[in-house]
Structures are given as structure tokens and as C-alpha cells.
Design a protein around this nucleic acid. Structure first.
Lengths: 217, 217
DNA sequence: TTAGTACCGTACCGTACGGTACCATGCAAG
DNA sequence: CTTGCATGGTACCGTACGGTACGGTACTAA
């Protein structure tokens, strides 16, 4: 992904990234309610520097969101001979990684921020998070589905539907519950179990193996 | 569901509900950013009255959320002899109703509000929305699943997993996209198609069909 | 040394908001 | 009528915040 930029479209210095880390911490702790003064205190810098670097509060938030967005890691690609179990392994790694992210405090804080700003319609944070969340996930998953379709592992009439189904099976209500403040986070084991079941279900719906019935959607 | 209450725990008068409607409108238009003065102007009442009735800003928001929560309608129950197509019809009505709600502007505004407040940890709005959203959906769906299980239409080892699967298949990424500000709303036809597919998929995963193996339930 | 630069800390300004006080109006009870 | 209550309208207060200005300090370059 792209480097995050500040107001002058320069790549960020180490010191600037320190500031963004402070912002992220505050965001996790207090949501959108923190002040520029608090950021300055936390990052041990002056407000004037914040405004020089990031323009205004919105610029600071945008830079923070972009920096995090540039960090989302996803499981690597695969080789040539794609087997069913290999395919399932990739999907499962994907699902685990995704669940770990969205049940985490950082992701929750960023999504909360973007969501509340989307309501006020005063910034592009929602768009940024959307592009680096579900949409990016879809982009990276598409070639995997494509490869599985070409090796006749699955049968997909519409890649978009398949992605949405996979998303739903994996994410379920975990994300909305987290965003609404439900405290209980699934354990690592719980995440793995959830991911495994989601992949099984996906393959049941879209796989072409010895399916017990015809599965058309 | 319960009647919504004001600060004195009296049921709301018609005038008070008018005020809450004004709040809701502002919420849809501007998110969380509206001021008490704006509410007073919009509702043609004085700020003092607002504070007398609802205590403070948080009380006003809480009353608004509770009033909406008390309005969620859900498809009615069913009779005795439950057939597969009847079961699917109920689920589909459920799914359609749910999708209509969560892709609507009012639901988005309320969820955005509750989510941003959940980040600041300063109110119980998240809890209220959660209880009247996914959790209430689960409560109402459970007896339907139960009845279907008893008539051997489906095979469910864990009602909670079944609900989460259904939720994921239905909601997919519609809600998070809406919350993040994606403008495009699915058409009524699109909602029906989505609901239909989700129910088909759910029955594929949990249905008993003519599978002869494992009859215990 | 001098000049320039980058930054920190802090004081300051204007504004907007939550919340309160006060007055005016209308209405019902007596 | 008068009294009391509920409510609308508005002025007001304290505070907190976004944003700016300014002084002080360390460092670099010549």
C-alpha cells in the first residue's frame, strides 16, 4: 500500500510517526473526544508543530488512519498446484487474520472514528477505511477464488456474491458487537474455531466436491 | 418492548415524542454534532424545557434511542405445522425486514451515535442498541429455529452458532458499508434477492433434506 | 560569532457549546 | 379577576476547544 503522507505530501519522518502513534493511543483510550492539546502533551510536541505538519485536526486524523491502513498485513499468495486443503488453508489464514484485526481495539477505534465522521459528512475517513477494509479484502481474495475456480475446486457464478458470503460467514456479528462496545473478545482459540467453521461452511456452499445436493445460489 | 421514558421515568407525552422526532431528524442530518439549541429551535421548544424533561444531553439521546428501539417491528410468529417452505418464508421475511432496517438512514444514524459513544465510554447507548439489535434478533429467532429443529427441518448443534451464521449470511457487509458512509443503498428488489439467497444458503448448511445419516437432534 | 532553522512550551483569541436564569405568554382552577 | 403552572424565547455564564502568535532553546552552517 501507499506511504502515509502529511499535509505537504511528504512521506512521514520518524518523529511524525511517533506523533501518529500518540494519536492512535488517545483514539483507543478516548475515542474521537481528545483535543489537539492532549495530542501535543502526549507526543511531547507543540501544537504549532502539529498544525504545521498536518494542517488541521482533520489532517491529523486522516494521516493517522492512512498510516494504519498502510499496515494491514494479509496472508501471502500461493503457488501453482492448488489443492482443496491448500485452498481452505489460505482462506482460513485469511479469516483468522481478519478476525484478529476487527476484534482488536485499534481497528475498533479507527472504525468508530471513521463511522462517526461519516455521519457528520465532513471528511473522507469513511472512504479510506472502507477502501482498506472490506474492499481491500475483496481485492485480495478475488484471485484466490479465481484460481480455485479454474482448478474446479469451487463453482462461483458471481465473485462478488462469493466474497460477500465469505465475509458474512467470517465476520458475522463480531464487528458490530465490538463497535457497540461489547467487552468480551474471543480468544485466539475461539477465533481459530470460528475461522475454521466459516471456511467449512463456505466450501459447503461453493465447493464442487462430492456435494450431497446441488447447491445453486 | 418497553415504553421509552424521560428523566422522571414517566411515559412520554405526545409533545415529548415530537421533540424526539426532531432529535432523530437532526441525528440523520448531522450525526452527533447537533447542539441542544438546534434541537430546541427545530422542535420549537425552549432549552429549559429540554433540560427539565430529559435531564441533560445524554438523557435526550438515550430517550431518542430507546424510543426507536421500542419501535422495531419483526415478522409475526407462526402456527403449528411447520413446513420447510413455511420455515424458509419466515426466515426470509425476517431477513428482508432486517436488511430494510439496517440499510436505512435512521438505523445508520442511531448506530453511528451509539458506536461513537461506545468509544468514549460515557454512556450506555451502545448497550441499548446492542440489546435491541443483534441480541433481540437472536431472541426472536431462537424459537423459530427451535420449532424447525423439533420438526426435523434443520439440524442444529448450537443455536448460537446457527444464529451467528444466519446473521452473517443476511447482513454480510451491508451494515458496515452503510455505517462507513457508502452511499449506494440496495433496492427493494436487491434486498429481497439477498434475503432469498441468504435463506437458501442457511438451509443448505443446516437443513436436513433427505440426508439419512445422523437423525439425532 | 552570527544567522537560520526547527522545534517545544505556553499564552492567547474567538467561538461554540452545555447548562442555567429570567421573563413573557397562555391557560386552567378558584 | 387572580393565582399558579407549564412552556417558549432569549440572554447569560463558564468552559473547552481549534487555531495562532510569540518567546526560548538547541543545533547547523558559514
Amino acid at each position: 500500500m501507499n506511504q502515509p503522507f502529511n499535509a505537504k505530501n511528504q512521506p512521514l519522518s520518524a518523529r511524525q510517526q511517533e506523533v501518529l502513534t500518540a494519536v492512535l493511543d488517545l483514539m483507543v483510550e478516548e475515542g474521537d473526544g481528545f483535543s489537539m492539546a492532549k495530542v501535543a502533551r502526549r507526543a511531547s510536541c507543540s501544537k504549532e508543530t502539529l498544525y504545521k505538519w498536518f494542517g488541521d485536526r482533520d489532517g491529523l486524523l486522516t494521516a493517522t488512519v492512512q498510516q494504519q491502513a498502510s499496515k494491514v498485513a494479509m496472508p501471502a499468495m500461493f503457488g501453482e498446484g492448488l489443492t482443496l486443503s491448500g485452498f481452505k488453508q489460505i482462506l482460513e489464514a485469511f479469516a483468522v487474520s481478519w478476525l484478529e484485526v476487527i476484534t482488536g481495539d485499534v481497528s475498533a477505534a479507527l472504525n468508530r472514528l471513521a463511522i462517526s465522521h461519516a455521519g457528520s459528512g465532513t471528511s473522507r475517513l469513511g472512504e479510506i477505511v472502507l477502501n482498506n477494509g472490506p474492499i481491500e479484502m475483496s481485492r485480495r481474495l478475488r484471485p484466490v477464488f479465481e484460481a480455485a475456480r479454474e482448478t474446479s475446486l469451487i463453482e462461483i457464478e458471481n465473485a462478488d456474491h462469493a466474497f460477500r458470503t465469505f465475509f458474512g460467514l467470517v465476520v458475522s456479528d463480531w464487528q458490530i458487537r465490538k463497535l457497540l462496545g461489547e467487552a468480551t473478545r474471543p480468544s485466539q482459540k475461539g477465533i481459530e474455531i470460528t475461522a475454521h467453521r466459516a471456511v467449512d461452511q463456505f466450501v459447503t456452499l461453493y465447493g464442487v466436491h462430492e456435494k450431497p445436493r446441488n447447491i445453486n445460489a
